[in-house]
Design a binder for these strands. Structure first.
Lengths: 341, 341
DNA sequence: TAATCTGTTGCAAACGTTTGCCGACTGGCT
DNA sequence: AGCCAGTCGGCAAACGTTTGCAACAGATTA
């Protein structure tokens, strides 16, 4: 049915090995022969069969990209960047969605293992042990989680969380809430630790609410609990939850940022579109996707397992404002200072 | 390196063909032998090599999913649903992004053709001819576009657009704008035609502004042009543009829906989060993804090329309000009637 | 008792490539 | 004229499966 290397060989009067070399080792074939072969190949519409090639070379030129939830707006920019970057290097990308389920995740890696040259594991929910185990079956790069000995790309959310808390403290807030994400999330632990330490160091209070499924609904559902703590400022695990909370607070007649300030994390496309515009910590997801692909493709050459950390930045918009302990003057200056920092 | 069918055969004392049959035709092997083979396979961690299998069966158990822009929030729910649905049927999914470029699209289909059992082409930007041509290389299902003779899943945006225009007319608007999408989009043509016909039938005016790249920025950039037309209501090609327009209008001090009403299309996750909440036409993207996968997988069996149309519904929120020709009374009743319809 | 059938297994070819090896040819030197 | 090096292209094995065919055993039928 489909046109194979054999058809091209026959049509151009050479052996199949010559056709093969025309594509995979052009310098070994006479320029004249080469162009003749290329011409007939083109004319016949020949495309090398990657599966057959993979069988013998052991390289599939495919990579797997496993994410917790495609519909979570955090991931699409990462997926897009990774796919585009991979394709530029002649790799195709399997994308799969685990629905935040570690079991599905495990299955998926094993199912994909034989079909790819490596897998990008984004925000994995498995245990460290499981991941280390899998690494023996297939090259892995982990995104958004740090596991010693494993190549990884992480966003420095700790830094972002510290900046966010400092910003809130500078605005005069003393009673803070961290609206937590999934228990198995490395990012979640990082944020909690960094935010907690920063608040404590300043003698402020940080109540942790959670863990939570990181979607808008749980953010909204947490509004009651947040108000019950008496806190005046909230840092949420991600923008989705922050936005949900924002809406729920407004629905209850609570003014944001007048009565409560809200900060998100991720800077997803829409956090600048809600009203008030969300103050948030921007994470460079596209860059992370590209870096992870690079790391995975290099991995084959040497066994070097680097770990890349990408910086995050606080973006101050309109969902944060002065708190009850705000210095009477120069709040604007404070804010400005934080911005510049 | 990896464990093959041969290792399992040796370890369980049978021929490789028996091992093969244990997996691909269990009823042909003695239950006792079967369980022995399965046991050793399990113990050795054997997983059939899909590439090798594909080579001989001609079926890869992979499908390709090509979209115009992964980061466009319209697509992630579709991708997610398609992937999950495909996986349940033991298929893996290649996802690729064309960046709205027909040339990339063409390349991508050809590159993927040999590696998949079929391709889902979502909102393709190629010409009908090109697509028909490709169909000879690989089974295709087109989403969001109707091409005679090709299996397709479309959303009935025509219906949604008509409903939207009727809603605006009922509210008392007579000067409407359609903020158009990409020229090569089938959906765009459908909307324009349906909206135009409906407006004309009611003796109202519909100005078309475009074509435009279907992103938020162009929506915002169109604010000036929209105001210049003197129209009091706008239907946008998608929610992204509608939201961009919404923001830009508000930034200019134009009240929505007080002075201008805005309707979007798609009902992406965030259209309910902006203020005012966006009135929009909901398209069942997840269902479309599943239907397309089903269609593609069935296609192999018979050559039946159905075309599925999914209905769309107008969702009335707060970005639309009474227009200059509003009937003095009973606006609420009108609106209520439209809602029920 | 012989013939036929059924169920289970082994054998070997095939799928479309890549690649190490070897032979043939070319042209430049001596 | 003879030799050598270098270039080019053919040969065939290999990758990990599936599958048509044949072999064999035991059961059933005539």
């Amino acid at each position: 049915m489909a046109v194979t290397i054999r058809d091209v060989a026959r049509a151009s009067g050479v052996h199949i090995s010559t056709v093969s070399r025309t594509f995979s080792a052009p310098h070994l074939v006479n320029p004249e022969t080469r162009s003749r072969v290329l011409a007939t190949a083109e004319q016949l519409g020949y495309r090398p069969n990657r599966a057959a090639r993979a069988l013998i070379t052991g390289r599939t030129h495919n990579i797997g990209l496993i994410v917790a939830d495609i519909a979570n707006p955090f991931f699409p920019p990462l997926i897009k960047a990774a796919e585009t970057h991979a394709r530029r290097r002649d790799y195709h990308v399997f994308v799969a969605d685990t629905d935040e389920d570690p079991i599905v995740e495990l299955d998926l890696v094993q199912a994909l293992a034989k079909q790819v040259d490596g897998i990008l594991l984004c925000s994995p929910r498995m245990t460290d042990d499981q991941i280390e185990q899998l690494r023996r079956e297939v090259p892995l790069v982990v995104v958004n989680r740090l596991i010693t000995g494993l190549p990884a790309v992480v966003m420095d959310v700790g830094h972002g969380a510290r900046e966010a808390v400092r910003h809130l403290l500078a605005l005069g807030h003393r009673d803070l809430v961290y609206l937590a994400g999934p228990r198995s999330s490395w990012t979640n632990r990082e944020i909690r630790r960094a935010a907690g330490a920063t608040a404590r160091a300043a003698g402020a209070d940080l109540t942790v609410l959670g863990p939570n499924h990181p979607v808008e609904q749980t953010g909204a559902a947490a509004a009651e609990a947040v108000l019950a703590t008496g806190a005046t400022a909230v840092l949420a695990y991600n923008d989705l939850m922050a936005i949900g909370l924002l809406q729920a607070l407004q629905d209850r007649g609570v003014d944001v940022p007048g009565q409560v300030s809200v900060v998100g994390i991720d800077d997803i496309a829409y956090s600048g579109l809600v009203r008030p515009r969300l103050t948030t910590v921007a994470t460079p997801t596209a860059a992370a996707g590209r870096a992870a692909v690079d790391m995975l493709l290099q991995q084959g050459d040497d066994g070097a397992t680097g770990q890349v950390t990408l910086r995050t930045d606080l973006i101050i918009r309109n969902s944060t404002g002065p708190g009850p302990y705000a210095p009477a003057v120069a709040i604007d200056a404070e804010v400005a200072a934080t911005v510049k920092e």
